[in-house]
Design a protein around this nucleic acid. Structure first.
Length: 129
DNA sequence: CGCCTGACGAAAC
DNA sequence: GGTTTCGCCAGGC
């Protein structure tokens, strides 16, 4: 690759120049895609990062097409504030979510992320909004 | 054009 | 202290 990842690539909302047509749906996908492997985040954190913290529901709702989006969105890294795999039931194979998380080094016990507190990845802190 | 739903979150009871 | 309900915002029918 010619360019080597320009250091911190802050996507910060998709506003190239007034082209926010992507709806915040794409924004959610972008943020989730930036989640490092072995890390997890919560819907509310993403929502807050986008500015819609008033409605974390929209974030999860945006994932409605998680299997319909172009680049694969690691929706399995997104869980609710409790660290529970709330969206696992929406995956093609519900167990796929735990499998992916376990593969990344994340332990899942009883549909809940073990050490969610340390694995928690805050987009607002990393991206800075 | 209007009602309902929706993978959360926090407050209220 | 656990359970329930409302609230947010936006899209789908």
């Amino acid at each position: 690759m010619a360019t080597k990842k320009s250091s911190s690539q802050k996507l910060k909302s998709v506003t190239p120049s007034g082209k926010k047509d992507e709806s915040f749906f794409a924004l959610v996908y972008d943020v989730v895609r930036q989640v490092p492997k072995g890390r997890v985040t919560s819907y509310g954190a993403i929502a807050a990062c986008l500015g819609t913290k008033l409605s974390a529901r929209m974030v999860g709702w945006a994932m409605n097409g998680c299997g319909n989006i172009k680049p694969k969105v690691p929706a399995h890294r997104v869980v609710n504030r409790l660290g529970m795999l709330s969206g696992k039931h929406h995956f093609k194979p519900p167990s796929k979510m735990e499998e992916l998380l376990k593969k990344e080094g994340i332990k899942v016990k009883n549909d809940q992320i073990v050490g969610f507190d340390k694995l928690f990845w805050d987009p607002v802190k990393e991206i800075g909004f």
